[in-house]
Write a protein that binds this DNA or RNA. Structure first.
Lengths: 113, 113
DNA sequence: GCGTTACTTAGGTATATGTCTAAGTATGAC
DNA sequence: GTCATACTTAGACATATACCTAAGTAACGC
């Protein structure tokens, strides 16, 4: 049973922003430098860096600096914790004991329309 | 290819809060009234209702009021959009053309240690 | 070494978020 | 009809978030 995990807060919150999801979609195709990543986003660089910082804090992205260039990469198994949590809930839902009851209840309501 | 979808913002943001994830975990086991849901949370009811409102806005929860009681339920396929987005990224990542290159690069780095 | 590039740090602002208390409203029970 | 129950609405507040500009710093490249 999944207990409360503060890392999931950061992970899902990070995913809740369109800019950050676009960064992840880009990184899914391969590593990139900060300026490469920033280029399509109409945003000042410091603002953009904040997004990268959150992705890294959430464990979704890793980065290393070589010379003056920072290269970012999708973290290995970046999405596993999020996917696992979601799957666990889906499975609980699908395995509910009262599922048949609900099914019947809905059917009855449909007929009354 | 997934374009920018504002519904995913709400969905992932909703998941980024521990109170809301606990609500969803509870609802995965079956429907419940607002007060049943609120009971384990040490929080004023109006504050708690805000969380429910966000879950509903995100399409994760549905609710109907019968008399003075509002019953909440996990939305059908609540987690599908989130799971789909995550899976799409994982697949892109796993299918990268340069994956073998990376593998070799990592191997070389390991040997230098 | 000097200018250019690629970030970084500092500090500011506006809006959103998560919480509260106090005061509704609508139902159900007696 | 009156009282308790189950939310709801309204309004306040503190912190977090998403952005900005301006001014660093630390490599390259000639």
């Amino acid at each position: 049973m999944s207990k409360y995990d503060p890392k999931l807060d950061q992970c899902f919150s990070a995913l809740g922003d369109p800019t950050r999801r676009l960064i992840l979609q880009r990184l899914a195709r391969g590593e990139a430098s900060v300026s490469e990543l920033a280029e399509p986003h109409d945003m000042a660089l410091p603002s953009f860096m904040e997004h990268l910082k959150k992705l890294e804090a959430a464990g979704l992205v890793t980065s290393k600096k070589q010379g003056r260039t920072r290269t970012c990469e999708l973290a290995p198994d970046a999405f596993a914790p999020a996917k696992d949590w979601l799957s666990e809930q889906s499975e609980t839902w699908e395995g509910r004991l009262d599922r048949f009851d609900d099914y019947v209840k809905n059917l009855m309501q449909e007929r009354q329309k």
